[in-house]
Simulated assay, not measured.
Amino acid sequence: MVIISNWVHIFVTAVGALVTALAVSHTTNRADYSAIIKEYRSEKDEYKKAYLETFNKYMVAEKQIVELKEQVKKLKKKLEEYQK
């Protein structure tokens, strides 16, 4: 029974050492993760800025289309008046 207890103790100690080594290696790579996250955030901000610029241009174009359609309607009415 003592032999089994010793082997269990050795096995648990080995697993604990392995888990500790993995935890230490994971925390040392955090700087890399934070750099990657910062890069992705800046890239996301660039895409968002480009999208908003494109959306604003689209909205300006939509307003111009509405204004031009109104002008076309007015000119059609004037043309009909002159043809009478």
Score class of each variant (00 low, 15 high):
H9W: 06
V12N: 15
V66N: 10
I10E: 14
E67N: 05
V8F: 10
V19I: 09
S5Q: 09
T28L: 15
V24F: 03
H9M: 09
E80P: 01
K48P: 00
I10L: 08
K48L: 06
V72S: 09
S34Y: 14
A23W: 02
A35I: 03
L52Q: 14
E46M: 03
W7F: 15
Y47N: 10
A61K: 04
S5Y: 08
K38N: 11
K74P: 04
T54S: 15
K74A: 10
Y58D: 05
E80V: 01
A14F: 00
H9N: 15
M1I: 06
E62T: 02
T20I: 06
T54M: 11
K57Q: 11
K76N: 12
Q83H: 09
K38W: 04
A50F: 05
L22M: 06
K84W: 00
V15R: 04
K69L: 03
R30E: 12
N6P: 05
Y47R: 07
W7S: 13
V15S: 05
I65D: 12
N29A: 12
E39T: 06
Q64Y: 05
Y40S: 05
I3K: 08
E81H: 05
I37L: 13
A23G: 04
I3D: 12
V2Y: 07
V15K: 04
K73H: 02
V8S: 08
V15L: 09
K57R: 12
E43N: 10
S25K: 08
K49L: 01
A14I: 00
S34T: 12
M59R: 14
G16I: 01
D32R: 11
A61H: 02
Y40L: 13
D45L: 02
K57P: 03
E46T: 09
A35C: 00
E81G: 01
E80R: 06
Y82G: 03
Y33R: 12
K74F: 06
K84N: 03
E67T: 00
Y47E: 13
G16S: 04
V15D: 05
T54A: 15
L18R: 00
Y40K: 09
R30V: 01
N29L: 13
A31Y: 07
S34K: 15
L22A: 05
V15M: 07
V60M: 08
K63E: 12
Y51G: 00
Y51S: 03
A50S: 09
K49A: 09
K73A: 07
E81P: 02
A50N: 12
Y47C: 02
N56R: 09
E81K: 13
V2N: 10
V19Q: 03
K44M: 12
